[in-house]
């Protein structure tokens, strides 16, 4: 297992903001760099723990492969759902251009 990474930098924060699709202001980038650094610093105490051979817990239930009978049941009302969309057309969600001009 790798050790804890170095302290988070402003460039890291800007990169993560792009990954998270959050257009942050310069002020926010500055503040989050400090605040995320503090929280991650606090997390260093888990680094000290020897977890060799300890399996991860993804969630606390012993449930596996929850299935139900393959029968038709009522779905959400399409018009009611589409009425909540910022934009809809021809029974579909409408979004801005996805591909560039070129």
């Amino acid at each position: 297992m790798s050790g804890m990474p170095a302290r988070i930098s402003r460039a890291d924060v800007a990169h993560v903001a792009r990954l998270a699709r959050l257009d942050l202001t310069d002020d926010e980038l500055e503040r989050f760099t400090d605040q995320l650094g503090a929280v991650l610093e606090h997390a260093r105490d888990v680094e000290a723990l020897d977890t060799e051979g300890v399996p991860p817990t993804a969630h606390p239930l012993p449930l596996r492969n929850v299935l139900r009978e393959d029968v038709v049941t009522p779905s959400l009302d399409r018009d009611e759902v589409l009425a909540q969309a910022p934009e809809a057309e021809a029974d579909r969600f409408k979004v801005p251009r996805i591909l560039g001009d070129a």
Partner: peptide
């Protein structure tokens, strides 16, 4: 969760959860 940090952070936290 980002590349290179997943095991050090999320993975380690999940093992601590087991402890």
């Amino acid at each position: 969760l980002s590349a290179g940090y997943y095991d050090a952070y999320y993975g380690q936290a999940q093992r601590v959860r087991t402890l």
